[in-house]
Each structure stands twice: as C-alpha cells, then as structure tokens.
C-alpha cells in the first residue's frame, strides 16, 4: 500500500470518520450518561458552572464532531463507490452490505440533523445566546433533552450497522 495511493486516502477518511464519531458520540453519551443524571445532585450554588463553562465547550465539540463525522463519512462512501447504493438501502443491489451501511448512514444522518437543527438551536436559547423568555427556555431545555435522548437511542442501532456492515458483510 503506497502512502499516497487512493486506498490510503480512503483509509485516512475512514480513520478521521471514526475519530470524529468518537468525539460526537462520546459527548452525546457524556450528556446522557454523566451530566444529565448528575446535575440534579449538584448543589444549586455550583450549578451555574455547568451551564457557563462546561456546557458551551462540550456543545462545541459535540456539534462540530457531528459535522466532521457526516462529512468524512460521505467522502468515504463516495470514495468507496457505494454512496448511492447505501442511500437507497441497497434495494435492488442484492447486497446486505449496502443495506446495512445504508441503515447506519440514514440513522447517523437523522442524528446529525437532530444535533444541528433541534438540539443546538434550543440549547442556544437555554444558554442565553439567543433571546428567549423563561417559559421558552424551559420548553427549549425539554426539547433539547428529549432529542438528545432520541439520539442516544438511535446511536445503538447506528453503531450496530456501521460495525456490523464491516464485520459481517465487507
């Protein structure tokens, strides 16, 4: 394998795809497995530290991790020549690989949409980056929280499909 070969660049994008995926899903699981259950146990006077210091930083790496994951994933699928086959879930292709990676891609794409078009706009209201009344902030926190939970749910079959496609059918 030459260092500058097409295969090397395809591998490079797969590597970057996994790295950025860890950045994204790592933060998603931090929000759901660590932060959300712990915040109610933190004394009131210490809670602003989460919203003012940890949350903005975590959301930055979370949303840009999501963006890097989808961009590198689409490039990788394009370079490997199965982007369209995966988008149409391998229907008519007689390939379980395309179907499996296709389901993974669609689940990941739904999660990416949720991050950028539901969670982030609502979190901007919660953090005061966008003007909102107290009632709106409360509703936004609920919407962002539930959408984050939906993404946690979707991450389980999404990772199954991503890893399963390679493990069983590549």
């Amino acid at each position: 394998m030459e260092l500058v070969s097409y295969e090397w660049w395809a591998f490079c994008f797969r590597w970057l795809h996994v790295l950025s995926g860890i950045m994204w899903i790592g933060h998603l699981w931090y929000f759901n497995f660590t932060q959300a259950p712990t915040v109610p146990k933190i004394p009131m006077e210490l809670r602003p530290a989460i919203g003012k210091f940890i949350l903005p930083e975590a959301l930055f790496w979370f949303r840009w991790g999501a963006m890097a994951t989808i961009v590198t994933g689409l490039i990788l699928a394009g370079m490997n020549g199965y982007l369209l086959n995966a988008i149409k879930l391998g229907i008519g292709d007689h390939s379980r690989y395309y179907t499996t990676i296709g389901f993974g891609m669609w689940l990941g794409a739904i999660m990416w949409f949720n991050v950028w078009f539901i969670i982030w706009p609502n979190q901007q209201k919660v953090m005061g980056l966008v003007q909102a009344s107290d009632d709106e902030k409360k509703a936004s926190a609920r919407t962002a929280g539930l959408t984050s939970r939906i993404n946690t749910l979707l991450s389980i079959p999404m990772v199954y499909c991503m890893v399963g496609a390679m493990h069983f059918y590549a």
């Binding site: 497995f33 379980r96 179907t99 499996t100 389901f103 939906i150 749910l153 979707l154 389980i156 199954y160």
Partner: peptide
C-alpha cells in the same frame, strides 16, 4: 403515561429493541 425517554435505562433498552427491528428490516430487504 410517563415518557420512556425520561429514563436512561428505558432509552438504552429501546435502542436494543430498535436494533433488532433494523436487523429484521436488513434481512427482509436483502
């Protein structure tokens, strides 16, 4: 009725259930 997504354990359990559904769909398609 309480939203199952309010429980982290139920969310994870639903994730595994959805995985089974997806696997069935994959095998149904190809």
């Amino acid at each position: 009725m309480k939203n199952p997504l309010d429980s982290l354990a139920q969310t994870v359990a639903l994730g595994f259930v959805l995985t089974v559904v997806v696997v069935i769909l994959i095998h149904a398609i190809n």
